[in-house]
Write a protein that binds this DNA or RNA. Sequence first.
DNA 1: ACGTTAAGAATTGTTGACAATCTCGTTGAC
DNA 2: GTCAACGAGATTGTCAACAATTCTTAACGT
Lengths: 237, 237
Amino acid sequence: MPWLSHSTTNDVINQICDRIWLAVVQRTLRPGARLKEEELTEIFGTTRARVRQALSILEQDGLVTIYPNRGACIAEPGVEDAQDAFSARLAIEQRLVTRLCRSASVEDIATLRDHIAQERAAHARGDSEAVIRLSGEFHMLIAKLSGAELLLKILRMLTIRTSLITAMYQTQATQTCGPDEHDRILTAIEARDEARASNEMAHHLHHLETALRLSDTPIPVSGLREALATNLRKRSP
Amino acid sequence: MPWLSHSTTNDVINQICDRIWLAVVQRTLRPGARLKEEELTEIFGTTRARVRQALSILEQDGLVTIYPNRGACIAEPGVEDAQDAFSARLAIEQRLVTRLCRSASVEDIATLRDHIAQERAAHARGDSEAVIRLSGEFHMLIAKLSGAELLLKILRMLTIRTSLITAMYQTQATQTCGPDEHDRILTAIEARDEARASNEMAHHLHHLETALRLSDTPIPVSGLREALATNLRKRSP
DNA sequence: ACGTTAAGAATTGTTGACAATCTCGTTGAC
DNA sequence: GTCAACGAGATTGTCAACAATTCTTAACGT
Protein backbone atom coordinates (compact mmCIF):
# COMPACT_ATOMS: atom_id res chain seq x y z
CA MET A 1 0.00 0.00 0.00
CA PRO A 2 2.78 2.48 0.64
CA TRP A 3 3.98 3.53 -2.70
CA LEU A 4 7.52 2.39 -2.38
CA SER A 5 9.72 1.29 0.45
CA HIS A 6 12.51 3.79 0.79
CA SER A 7 16.02 2.86 1.65
CA THR A 8 15.57 3.86 5.27
CA THR A 9 14.76 1.19 7.78
CA ASN A 10 13.02 3.62 10.08
CA ASP A 11 9.26 3.31 9.90
CA VAL A 12 8.43 6.81 11.00
CA ILE A 13 10.67 8.43 8.43
CA ASN A 14 9.29 6.22 5.68
CA GLN A 15 5.80 7.17 6.68
CA ILE A 16 6.60 10.86 6.54
CA CYS A 17 8.16 10.50 3.12
CA ASP A 18 5.30 8.43 1.77
CA ARG A 19 2.61 10.74 3.08
CA ILE A 20 4.26 13.84 1.65
CA TRP A 21 4.91 12.10 -1.64
CA LEU A 22 1.29 10.96 -1.75
CA ALA A 23 0.00 14.41 -0.93
CA VAL A 24 2.00 15.83 -3.80
CA VAL A 25 0.81 13.22 -6.25
CA GLN A 26 -2.83 13.81 -5.47
CA ARG A 27 -2.41 17.58 -5.45
CA THR A 28 -3.02 18.18 -1.78
CA LEU A 29 0.40 19.77 -1.57
CA ARG A 30 1.25 22.05 -4.44
CA PRO A 31 4.79 22.75 -5.66
CA GLY A 32 6.24 25.65 -3.73
CA ALA A 33 4.29 24.84 -0.58
CA ARG A 34 6.16 25.54 2.60
CA LEU A 35 7.09 22.64 4.86
CA LYS A 36 7.80 23.83 8.36
CA GLU A 37 9.61 21.36 10.53
CA GLU A 38 7.60 21.99 13.66
CA GLU A 39 4.36 21.64 11.79
CA LEU A 40 5.40 18.23 10.54
CA THR A 41 6.52 17.11 13.98
CA GLU A 42 3.04 17.82 15.32
CA ILE A 43 1.29 16.12 12.44
CA PHE A 44 3.31 12.95 12.64
CA GLY A 45 3.82 13.02 16.39
CA THR A 46 7.57 12.65 16.26
CA THR A 47 10.67 14.68 16.95
CA ARG A 48 12.19 17.37 14.83
CA ALA A 49 15.27 15.28 14.14
CA ARG A 50 13.18 12.66 12.36
CA VAL A 51 11.38 15.24 10.28
CA ARG A 52 14.73 16.67 9.37
CA GLN A 53 15.99 13.30 8.18
CA ALA A 54 12.86 12.76 6.15
CA LEU A 55 13.21 16.16 4.50
CA SER A 56 16.81 15.39 3.70
CA ILE A 57 15.79 12.18 1.96
CA LEU A 58 13.04 13.91 0.07
CA GLU A 59 15.53 16.52 -1.06
CA GLN A 60 17.77 13.77 -2.39
CA ASP A 61 14.81 12.40 -4.29
CA GLY A 62 14.08 15.82 -5.71
CA LEU A 63 10.65 16.15 -4.17
CA VAL A 64 11.51 19.07 -1.92
CA THR A 65 14.04 21.83 -2.11
CA ILE A 66 15.81 22.90 1.06
CA TYR A 67 16.86 26.52 1.17
CA PRO A 68 19.56 26.76 3.85
CA ASN A 69 18.40 28.60 6.96
CA ARG A 70 15.11 29.27 5.21
CA GLY A 71 13.25 26.02 5.25
CA ALA A 72 11.94 23.38 2.90
CA CYS A 73 9.42 23.67 0.10
CA ILE A 74 7.93 21.27 -2.39
CA ALA A 75 10.25 21.47 -5.35
CA GLU A 76 9.39 23.44 -8.47
CA PRO A 77 11.30 21.90 -11.34
CA GLY A 78 11.70 23.93 -14.52
CA VAL A 79 10.69 22.91 -18.00
CA GLU A 80 14.27 21.85 -18.65
CA ASP A 81 14.03 19.30 -15.88
CA ALA A 82 10.73 18.11 -17.26
CA GLN A 83 12.18 17.42 -20.67
CA ASP A 84 15.14 15.65 -19.17
CA ALA A 85 12.89 13.56 -16.98
CA PHE A 86 10.67 12.51 -19.85
CA SER A 87 13.70 11.83 -21.96
CA ALA A 88 15.21 9.60 -19.30
CA ARG A 89 11.89 7.94 -18.60
CA LEU A 90 11.60 7.03 -22.25
CA ALA A 91 15.00 5.40 -22.18
CA ILE A 92 14.44 3.56 -18.91
CA GLU A 93 10.88 2.47 -19.44
CA GLN A 94 11.42 1.17 -22.93
CA ARG A 95 14.09 -1.04 -21.45
CA LEU A 96 11.79 -2.08 -18.65
CA VAL A 97 8.94 -3.23 -20.85
CA THR A 98 11.34 -5.00 -23.14
CA ARG A 99 12.73 -6.87 -20.18
CA LEU A 100 9.27 -7.58 -18.88
CA CYS A 101 8.25 -9.12 -22.19
CA ARG A 102 10.78 -11.85 -21.52
CA SER A 103 10.43 -12.27 -17.77
CA ALA A 104 6.76 -11.60 -17.03
CA SER A 105 4.94 -14.45 -15.34
CA VAL A 106 1.21 -15.03 -15.58
CA GLU A 107 0.82 -13.59 -12.10
CA ASP A 108 2.68 -10.46 -13.15
CA ILE A 109 0.32 -9.98 -16.05
CA ALA A 110 -2.66 -10.62 -13.82
CA THR A 111 -1.37 -8.01 -11.38
CA LEU A 112 -1.04 -5.46 -14.15
CA ARG A 113 -4.45 -6.28 -15.53
CA ASP A 114 -5.97 -5.88 -12.11
CA HIS A 115 -4.26 -2.54 -11.71
CA ILE A 116 -5.66 -1.31 -15.00
CA ALA A 117 -9.09 -2.42 -13.85
CA GLN A 118 -8.68 -0.21 -10.80
CA GLU A 119 -7.69 2.64 -13.07
CA ARG A 120 -10.81 2.15 -15.14
CA ALA A 121 -12.96 2.07 -12.05
CA ALA A 122 -11.48 5.29 -10.72
CA HIS A 123 -11.85 6.86 -14.13
CA ALA A 124 -15.45 5.77 -14.34
CA ARG A 125 -16.46 7.22 -11.02
CA GLY A 126 -14.60 10.45 -11.73
CA ASP A 127 -12.17 10.11 -8.87
CA SER A 128 -9.43 12.25 -10.35
CA GLU A 129 -7.12 11.90 -7.38
CA ALA A 130 -7.13 8.14 -7.66
CA VAL A 131 -6.73 8.35 -11.41
CA ILE A 132 -3.58 10.43 -11.09
CA ARG A 133 -2.16 8.25 -8.37
CA LEU A 134 -2.95 4.96 -10.08
CA SER A 135 -1.69 6.20 -13.40
CA GLY A 136 1.69 6.85 -11.84
CA GLU A 137 1.65 3.61 -9.92
CA PHE A 138 1.23 1.64 -13.12
CA HIS A 139 4.67 2.66 -14.30
CA MET A 140 6.22 1.97 -10.91
CA LEU A 141 4.54 -1.42 -10.96
CA ILE A 142 6.18 -2.30 -14.24
CA ALA A 143 9.55 -1.43 -12.75
CA LYS A 144 8.87 -3.43 -9.63
CA LEU A 145 7.75 -6.49 -11.56
CA SER A 146 10.78 -6.38 -13.79
CA GLY A 147 12.77 -6.96 -10.64
CA ALA A 148 15.40 -4.32 -11.26
CA GLU A 149 16.01 -2.61 -7.96
CA LEU A 150 18.16 0.09 -9.44
CA LEU A 151 15.87 0.95 -12.32
CA LEU A 152 12.99 1.18 -9.88
CA LYS A 153 14.89 3.68 -7.79
CA ILE A 154 15.77 5.75 -10.83
CA LEU A 155 12.25 5.63 -12.18
CA ARG A 156 11.01 6.86 -8.84
CA MET A 157 13.20 9.94 -9.12
CA LEU A 158 12.00 10.54 -12.64
CA THR A 159 8.36 10.02 -11.79
CA ILE A 160 8.65 12.53 -8.98
CA ARG A 161 9.84 15.13 -11.46
CA THR A 162 7.16 14.45 -14.01
CA SER A 163 4.49 14.40 -11.32
CA LEU A 164 5.62 17.78 -10.06
CA ILE A 165 5.67 19.12 -13.57
CA THR A 166 2.19 17.80 -14.17
CA ALA A 167 0.99 19.49 -11.02
CA MET A 168 2.59 22.75 -12.09
CA TYR A 169 1.82 23.03 -15.75
CA GLN A 170 -1.52 21.30 -15.93
CA THR A 171 -3.88 23.76 -17.60
CA GLN A 172 -7.25 22.22 -16.88
CA ALA A 173 -8.53 18.70 -16.60
CA THR A 174 -6.10 17.30 -19.10
CA GLN A 175 -7.32 13.81 -18.57
CA THR A 176 -4.22 11.78 -17.90
CA CYS A 177 -4.94 9.87 -21.07
CA GLY A 178 -7.07 7.14 -19.59
CA PRO A 179 -6.05 3.57 -18.94
CA ASP A 180 -6.44 2.61 -22.59
CA GLU A 181 -2.80 3.22 -23.42
CA HIS A 182 -1.72 1.27 -20.39
CA ASP A 183 -3.89 -1.52 -21.67
CA ARG A 184 -2.23 -1.44 -25.06
CA ILE A 185 1.17 -1.74 -23.39
CA LEU A 186 0.02 -4.67 -21.31
CA THR A 187 -1.41 -6.40 -24.35
CA ALA A 188 1.92 -6.12 -26.10
CA ILE A 189 3.70 -7.50 -23.05
CA GLU A 190 1.29 -10.37 -22.85
CA ALA A 191 1.96 -11.15 -26.52
CA ARG A 192 5.70 -11.06 -25.75
CA ASP A 193 6.09 -8.58 -28.56
CA GLU A 194 9.09 -6.56 -27.41
CA ALA A 195 9.13 -4.11 -30.29
CA ARG A 196 5.45 -3.32 -30.01
CA ALA A 197 5.60 -2.95 -26.23
CA SER A 198 8.51 -0.57 -26.57
CA ASN A 199 6.67 1.45 -29.19
CA GLU A 200 3.49 1.61 -27.17
CA MET A 201 5.44 2.87 -24.19
CA ALA A 202 7.16 5.48 -26.32
CA HIS A 203 3.85 6.62 -27.71
CA HIS A 204 2.33 6.77 -24.25
CA LEU A 205 5.14 8.86 -22.78
CA HIS A 206 5.19 11.12 -25.79
CA HIS A 207 1.50 11.62 -25.35
CA LEU A 208 1.97 12.52 -21.71
CA GLU A 209 4.72 14.98 -22.50
CA THR A 210 2.99 16.79 -25.32
CA ALA A 211 -0.15 17.11 -23.21
CA LEU A 212 2.01 19.06 -20.80
CA ARG A 213 4.05 20.99 -23.30
CA LEU A 214 0.89 22.82 -24.33
CA SER A 215 1.11 24.96 -21.25
CA ASP A 216 4.72 25.89 -21.71
CA THR A 217 4.70 29.62 -21.32
CA PRO A 218 2.27 29.96 -18.37
CA ILE A 219 3.73 30.58 -14.97
CA PRO A 220 3.93 27.79 -12.42
CA VAL A 221 1.01 27.61 -10.05
CA SER A 222 2.88 28.46 -6.94
CA GLY A 223 4.71 31.32 -8.56
CA LEU A 224 1.69 33.46 -7.89
CA ARG A 225 1.38 32.34 -4.34
CA GLU A 226 5.02 32.86 -3.67
CA ALA A 227 4.91 36.27 -5.25
CA LEU A 228 1.75 37.58 -3.59
CA ALA A 229 0.68 35.94 -0.37
CA THR A 230 3.21 34.58 2.03
CA ASN A 231 1.30 33.36 5.04
CA LEU A 232 -0.76 30.50 3.66
CA ARG A 233 -1.36 27.73 6.14
CA LYS A 234 -1.61 24.15 5.02
CA ARG A 235 -4.97 22.50 5.66
CA SER A 236 -4.88 20.39 8.78
CA PRO A 237 -5.70 16.69 8.39
CA MET B 1 38.52 19.41 -9.10
CA PRO B 2 35.88 17.88 -6.88
CA TRP B 3 34.24 15.20 -8.91
CA LEU B 4 30.76 16.53 -8.66
CA SER B 5 28.96 19.07 -6.58
CA HIS B 6 26.38 17.30 -4.50
CA SER B 7 22.99 18.68 -3.74
CA THR B 8 24.03 19.75 -0.27
CA THR B 9 25.10 23.31 0.27
CA ASN B 10 27.32 22.37 3.20
CA ASP B 11 30.97 22.38 2.24
CA VAL B 12 32.16 19.96 4.89
CA ILE B 13 29.61 17.33 3.98
CA ASN B 14 30.42 17.67 0.31
CA GLN B 15 34.08 17.26 1.08
CA ILE B 16 33.45 14.10 3.05
CA CYS B 17 31.33 12.64 0.28
CA ASP B 18 33.85 13.56 -2.40
CA ARG B 19 36.83 12.18 -0.52
CA ILE B 20 35.12 8.87 0.20
CA TRP B 21 33.88 8.62 -3.35
CA LEU B 22 37.36 9.37 -4.63
CA ALA B 23 38.92 6.82 -2.32
CA VAL B 24 36.57 4.19 -3.64
CA VAL B 25 37.22 5.07 -7.25
CA GLN B 26 40.95 4.82 -6.89
CA ARG B 27 40.74 1.64 -4.83
CA THR B 28 41.95 3.05 -1.53
CA LEU B 29 38.68 1.95 0.02
CA ARG B 30 37.48 -1.48 -1.05
CA PRO B 31 33.83 -2.52 -1.09
CA GLY B 32 32.86 -3.89 2.28
CA ALA B 33 35.25 -1.63 4.16
CA ARG B 34 33.96 -0.43 7.48
CA LEU B 35 33.27 3.27 7.98
CA LYS B 36 33.16 4.17 11.64
CA GLU B 37 31.61 7.48 12.45
CA GLU B 38 34.14 8.53 15.04
CA GLU B 39 37.00 7.65 12.76
CA LEU B 40 35.61 9.93 10.09
CA THR B 41 35.02 12.76 12.53
CA GLU B 42 38.69 12.71 13.46
CA ILE B 43 39.88 12.51 9.87
CA PHE B 44 37.77 15.40 8.69
CA GLY B 45 37.88 17.37 11.91
CA THR B 46 34.15 17.80 12.19
CA THR B 47 31.27 16.64 14.34
CA ARG B 48 29.59 13.28 14.31
CA ALA B 49 26.35 14.80 13.12
CA ARG B 50 27.97 15.97 9.90
CA VAL B 51 29.54 12.61 9.27
CA ARG B 52 26.16 11.08 9.83
CA GLN B 53 24.59 13.36 7.24
CA ALA B 54 27.31 12.57 4.77
CA LEU B 55 26.86 8.84 5.26
CA SER B 56 23.15 9.23 4.77
CA ILE B 57 23.71 10.97 1.46
CA LEU B 58 26.20 8.36 0.36
CA GLU B 59 23.70 5.68 1.20
CA GLN B 60 21.13 7.38 -0.98
CA ASP B 61 23.66 7.42 -3.78
CA GLY B 62 24.33 3.73 -3.28
CA LEU B 63 27.98 4.12 -2.37
CA VAL B 64 27.61 2.86 1.17
CA THR B 65 25.11 0.64 2.88
CA ILE B 66 24.07 1.42 6.42
CA TYR B 67 23.29 -1.55 8.63
CA PRO B 68 21.07 -0.22 11.42
CA ASN B 69 22.80 -0.12 14.78
CA ARG B 70 25.82 -1.76 13.15
CA GLY B 71 27.46 0.95 11.14
CA ALA B 72 28.21 1.83 7.54
CA CYS B 73 30.26 -0.03 4.95
CA ILE B 74 31.21 0.61 1.37
CA ALA B 75 28.45 -1.02 -0.64
CA GLU B 76 28.89 -4.36 -2.35
CA PRO B 77 26.46 -4.50 -5.25
CA GLY B 78 25.67 -7.85 -6.80
CA VAL B 79 26.05 -8.82 -10.42
CA GLU B 80 22.36 -8.12 -10.94
CA ASP B 81 22.91 -4.51 -9.99
CA ALA B 82 25.88 -4.35 -12.31
CA GLN B 83 23.87 -5.48 -15.28
CA ASP B 84 21.10 -3.05 -14.46
CA ALA B 85 23.58 -0.23 -14.08
CA PHE B 86 25.24 -0.93 -17.41
CA SER B 87 21.88 -1.31 -19.03
CA ALA B 88 20.73 2.04 -17.72
CA ARG B 89 24.04 3.68 -18.54
CA LEU B 90 23.67 2.56 -22.10
CA ALA B 91 20.25 4.15 -22.33
CA ILE B 92 21.25 7.37 -20.63
CA GLU B 93 24.63 7.89 -22.24
CA GLN B 94 23.45 7.21 -25.75
CA ARG B 95 20.96 9.96 -25.21
CA LEU B 96 23.62 12.23 -23.77
CA VAL B 97 26.02 11.94 -26.67
CA THR B 98 23.19 12.36 -29.13
CA ARG B 99 22.21 15.54 -27.39
CA LEU B 100 25.79 16.69 -27.22
CA CYS B 101 26.18 16.27 -30.97
CA ARG B 102 23.66 19.03 -31.40
CA SER B 103 24.60 21.31 -28.55
CA ALA B 104 28.36 20.99 -28.18
CA SER B 105 30.30 24.24 -28.53
CA VAL B 106 33.89 24.46 -29.64
CA GLU B 107 34.92 24.99 -26.03
CA ASP B 108 33.08 21.85 -24.99
CA ILE B 109 34.95 19.83 -27.57
CA ALA B 110 38.22 21.41 -26.51
CA THR B 111 37.47 20.48 -22.90
CA LEU B 112 36.82 16.90 -23.86
CA ARG B 113 39.94 16.75 -26.01
CA ASP B 114 41.98 18.12 -23.16
CA HIS B 115 40.55 15.53 -20.84
CA ILE B 116 41.45 12.72 -23.19
CA ALA B 117 44.95 14.13 -23.34
CA GLN B 118 45.15 13.82 -19.58
CA GLU B 119 43.96 10.26 -19.86
CA ARG B 120 46.68 9.48 -22.37
CA ALA B 121 49.30 11.06 -20.14
CA ALA B 122 48.21 9.06 -17.13
CA HIS B 123 48.09 5.94 -19.24
CA ALA B 124 51.57 6.59 -20.59
CA ARG B 125 53.16 7.05 -17.19
CA GLY B 126 51.41 3.99 -15.82
CA ASP B 127 49.43 5.88 -13.20
CA SER B 128 46.61 3.39 -12.91
CA GLU B 129 44.79 5.31 -10.19
CA ALA B 130 44.57 8.39 -12.38
CA VAL B 131 43.57 6.27 -15.36
CA ILE B 132 40.65 4.79 -13.50
CA ARG B 133 39.57 8.12 -12.10
CA LEU B 134 39.90 10.03 -15.37
CA SER B 135 38.18 7.29 -17.32
CA GLY B 136 35.14 7.68 -15.12
CA GLU B 137 35.33 11.44 -15.17
CA PHE B 138 35.12 11.44 -18.96
CA HIS B 139 31.61 10.11 -18.84
CA MET B 140 30.59 12.51 -16.12
CA LEU B 141 32.07 15.32 -18.16
CA ILE B 142 29.87 14.45 -21.10
CA ALA B 143 26.85 14.61 -18.85
CA LYS B 144 27.93 17.90 -17.38
CA LEU B 145 28.57 19.49 -20.76
CA SER B 146 25.23 18.36 -22.07
CA GLY B 147 23.76 20.57 -19.39
CA ALA B 148 21.20 18.13 -18.09
CA GLU B 149 21.23 18.39 -14.33
CA LEU B 150 19.00 15.41 -13.82
CA LEU B 151 20.82 13.10 -16.19
CA LEU B 152 24.07 14.03 -14.49
CA LYS B 153 22.66 13.04 -11.14
CA ILE B 154 21.40 9.74 -12.47
CA LEU B 155 24.61 8.99 -14.27
CA ARG B 156 26.45 9.60 -11.02
CA MET B 157 24.39 6.94 -9.31
CA LEU B 158 25.02 4.54 -12.16
CA THR B 159 28.72 5.27 -12.31
CA ILE B 160 29.01 4.59 -8.61
CA ARG B 161 27.56 1.13 -9.14
CA THR B 162 29.76 0.26 -12.07
CA SER B 163 32.82 1.59 -10.26
CA LEU B 164 32.08 -0.57 -7.26
CA ILE B 165 31.53 -3.56 -9.48
CA THR B 166 34.79 -2.88 -11.25
CA ALA B 167 36.55 -2.72 -7.92
CA MET B 168 34.97 -5.99 -6.84
CA TYR B 169 35.15 -8.17 -9.90
CA GLN B 170 38.32 -6.94 -11.49
CA THR B 171 40.52 -9.98 -11.99
CA GLN B 172 43.86 -8.38 -12.69
CA ALA B 173 44.96 -5.25 -14.46
CA THR B 174 42.13 -5.28 -16.92
CA GLN B 175 43.23 -2.08 -18.51
CA THR B 176 40.16 0.13 -18.56
CA CYS B 177 40.32 0.07 -22.34
CA GLY B 178 42.52 3.08 -22.91
CA PRO B 179 41.42 6.51 -24.05
CA ASP B 180 41.17 5.40 -27.67
CA GLU B 181 37.50 4.59 -27.45
CA HIS B 182 36.82 7.88 -25.75
CA ASP B 183 38.61 9.53 -28.61
CA ARG B 184 36.43 7.77 -31.15
CA ILE B 185 33.35 9.02 -29.33
CA LEU B 186 34.66 12.56 -29.30
CA THR B 187 35.50 12.41 -32.98
CA ALA B 188 31.94 11.40 -33.76
CA ILE B 189 30.60 14.22 -31.61
CA GLU B 190 32.87 16.70 -33.35
CA ALA B 191 31.57 15.49 -36.70
CA ARG B 192 28.01 15.97 -35.39
CA ASP B 193 27.29 12.41 -36.42
CA GLU B 194 24.64 11.41 -33.90
CA ALA B 195 24.24 7.83 -35.04
CA ARG B 196 27.95 7.15 -35.00
CA ALA B 197 28.45 8.77 -31.60
CA SER B 198 25.64 6.71 -30.19
CA ASN B 199 27.13 3.54 -31.66
CA GLU B 200 30.59 4.30 -30.39
CA MET B 201 29.22 4.86 -26.92
CA ALA B 202 27.31 1.59 -27.07
CA HIS B 203 30.40 -0.23 -28.19
CA HIS B 204 32.47 1.36 -25.47
CA LEU B 205 30.05 0.46 -22.69
CA HIS B 206 29.62 -3.03 -24.01
CA HIS B 207 33.37 -3.39 -23.99
CA LEU B 208 33.53 -2.24 -20.39
CA GLU B 209 30.82 -4.64 -19.35
CA THR B 210 32.18 -7.74 -21.05
CA ALA B 211 35.63 -7.02 -19.63
CA LEU B 212 33.99 -7.36 -16.23
CA ARG B 213 31.66 -10.22 -16.99
CA LEU B 214 34.68 -12.45 -17.50
CA SER B 215 35.14 -12.66 -13.79
CA ASP B 216 31.56 -13.49 -13.07
CA THR B 217 31.83 -16.54 -10.86
CA PRO B 218 34.66 -15.38 -8.56
CA ILE B 219 33.68 -14.11 -5.18
CA PRO B 220 33.76 -10.41 -4.44
CA VAL B 221 36.96 -9.16 -2.90
CA SER B 222 35.56 -8.23 0.44
CA GLY B 223 33.47 -11.35 0.67
CA LEU B 224 36.55 -13.11 1.96
CA ARG B 225 37.29 -10.38 4.40
CA GLU B 226 33.78 -10.33 5.69
CA ALA B 227 33.73 -14.10 6.03
CA LEU B 228 37.11 -14.61 7.67
CA ALA B 229 38.67 -11.66 9.44
CA THR B 230 36.54 -8.98 10.97
CA ASN B 231 38.96 -6.62 12.62
CA LEU B 232 40.75 -5.07 9.70
CA ARG B 233 41.73 -1.49 10.28
CA LYS B 234 41.68 0.99 7.49
CA ARG B 235 45.05 2.46 6.62
CA SER B 236 45.42 5.92 8.12
CA PRO B 237 46.08 8.82 5.73
C1' DA C 1 4.32 58.58 1.80
C1' DC C 2 8.40 56.14 1.15
C1' DG C 3 12.48 53.83 2.28
C1' DT C 4 15.56 52.57 6.08
C1' DT C 5 16.76 50.61 10.39
C1' DA C 6 16.35 48.06 14.50
C1' DA C 7 14.26 45.19 17.96
C1' DG C 8 11.40 41.03 18.63
C1' DA C 9 9.42 36.71 17.07
C1' DA C 10 9.67 32.64 14.49
C1' DT C 11 12.32 29.19 12.29
C1' DT C 12 16.28 26.54 11.25
C1' DG C 13 21.01 24.66 12.52
C1' DT C 14 24.17 22.65 15.92
C1' DT C 15 26.04 20.67 19.89
C1' DG C 16 26.82 17.59 23.62
C1' DA C 17 25.16 14.35 26.69
C1' DC C 18 22.45 10.31 27.30
C1' DA C 19 20.14 5.86 25.88
C1' DA C 20 19.93 1.69 23.07
C1' DT C 21 22.25 -1.76 20.64
C1' DC C 22 25.87 -4.61 19.12
C1' DT C 23 30.64 -6.90 19.47
C1' DC C 24 33.67 -9.79 21.61
C1' DG C 25 36.23 -11.92 25.18
C1' DT C 26 35.31 -14.54 29.46
C1' DT C 27 33.17 -17.64 32.43
C1' DG C 28 30.78 -21.62 33.65
C1' DA C 29 28.02 -25.80 32.96
C1' DC C 30 27.47 -30.04 30.65
C1' DG D 1 36.00 -29.68 24.31
C1' DT D 2 31.76 -27.37 22.97
C1' DC D 3 28.29 -24.39 23.60
C1' DA D 4 25.49 -20.88 25.86
C1' DA D 5 24.92 -17.16 28.87
C1' DC D 6 26.94 -12.98 30.56
C1' DG D 7 29.02 -8.44 30.97
C1' DA D 8 32.40 -4.82 29.83
C1' DG D 9 33.64 -1.98 26.11
C1' DA D 10 32.70 0.05 21.86
C1' DT D 11 29.58 1.92 18.48
C1' DT D 12 25.43 3.80 16.86
C1' DG D 13 20.81 6.19 17.67
C1' DT D 14 18.08 9.79 19.97
C1' DC D 15 16.79 13.87 22.16
C1' DA D 16 16.26 18.42 24.16
C1' DA D 17 18.32 22.62 25.03
C1' DC D 18 21.12 26.19 22.98
C1' DA D 19 23.00 29.14 19.08
C1' DA D 20 22.55 31.34 14.63
C1' DT D 21 19.88 33.00 11.01
C1' DT D 22 15.95 34.89 8.83
C1' DC D 23 11.40 37.01 8.75
C1' DT D 24 8.08 40.32 10.65
C1' DT D 25 6.63 44.40 12.52
C1' DA D 26 6.89 48.85 13.88
C1' DA D 27 9.09 53.02 14.66
C1' DC D 28 11.89 56.73 12.74
C1' DG D 29 13.74 60.27 9.74
C1' DT D 30 13.68 62.39 5.41
